[in-house]
Write a protein that binds this DNA or RNA. Structure first.
Lengths: 195, 195
DNA sequence: ACCAAAAGATGTCCTTCATCATCTTTTGAA
DNA sequence: TTCAAAAGATGATGAAGGACATCTTTTGGT
């Protein structure tokens, strides 16, 4: 089997990563196979050796965030999922609802960058999106205090605040209002942990 | 000036309403001028008598919700913006974060149906989106109790919970988790009014 | 060195639209 | 009744892009 072993996997990973960045910035429809392959340092033709369709790539791109850039992101933010303390939950809030995260179009969480895009895709893509949510909820739930039901409810609400606050802040044009929304969501989510 | 007076306006309104439904359900890219005009009971060609481009139509469609279907929606939900009481704020939460609203793809609030779509559009379209948010925040702010700063902060957080909860619930495929998210966002938003 | 299968590159097909030019219909005003 | 301007319908154009058939390159195994 010619080509160094693991070559295909490496290429595939490069394609997924390029796709993730491009989809995040421009959405599903505006990104072409051409753009993705060029960004990955390859050419159009080879694409279908790795993926059955553009849609399958989209699912892979969303999914990739969890263990890829997302893990990197958590590391940078000082969020360590093996250390489940209330401080860690707060750390997560600090980073997720930060002005910095809002500005990082290419590397921000896909839950923020492409919700309505994903909502109209196949169940597989939506499942990938759900996996991101599940991970976030789990993290908040595990770092809460109080009864199981309370922790669950708060974790879900905190996730809704994270995504809702950032989605709104990212969409509206008035940067002052945008900042206000982000800050208010952060405040409310932080308050939830201390109730 | 031939054609009954007000004919053009009526046609334009029909086009916008058809567009609003279609965009809500399928997003900007997947909707064609053809589809919109057919839905409005007209044909492709006449479109550019009314709008300069598809994008301008999109902005008009988003904007139209506030005074059009949105007003109708508020009336049905018993939300009366001339009666600014805490009960009215709660009424708004009840309806916005309801399972019914979640299922109404065509008539649901565009803030839920197309955030990431709008985020990549022109400032005009994003302004229309912001107008919806501003109206919602105003409504919550006006029906809160407490200091101005507190009311403002809570109103923004409640809006983030409304949009975030519904966006997540609409996007994930697991209907059980979806329902859980919706309910948690509702609970948290309701709690905010009583703090 | 040689072969072949995997991976990548090139060229092309075919469909889908947004947009516009042009033609037809409608009806208020003269 | 006639005219003309507004509104609507029809047909055409041109570009974009997903998908794929077909070459070409690469290199591990022999």
């Amino acid at each position: 089997m010619p080509y160094p072993s693991g070559h295909a996997e490496k290429s595939k990973a490069k394609i997924v990563e390029a796709a993730r960045c491009l989809f995040n910035a421009h959405g599903f429809e505006k990104v072409t196979i051409d753009m993705v392959m060029k960004e990955a340092g390859l050419t159009r033709g080879g694409f279908y050796r790795h993926f059955a369709s553009k849609e399958v790539l989209y699912g892979a791109a969303v999914q990739s965030f969890l263990m890829g850039k997302g893990a990197e992101w958590r590391a940078d933010a000082g969020v360590d999922p093996t250390n489940l303390s209330p401080e860690m939950g707060q750390q997560m809030l600090d980073s997720y609802l930060s002005a910095k995260h809002l500005g990082e179009l290419e590397n921000q969480c896909p839950m923020i960058a492409l919700p309505s895009d994903v909502a109209r895709q196949s169940p597989e893509v939506r499942q990938a999106y759900q996996n991101l949510l599940t991970a976030m909820v789990w993290l908040f739930e595990s770092t809460q205090e109080g009864s199981a039901a309370k922790r669950r409810q708060r974790a879900l609400a905190m996730s809704a605040l994270c995504v809702g606050g950032m989605v709104l802040a990212r969409t509206i044009p008035d940067s002052e209002l945008s900042e206000e929304v982000r800050a208010a969501a952060y405040q409310a989510a932080s308050d939830l942990t201390k109730t």
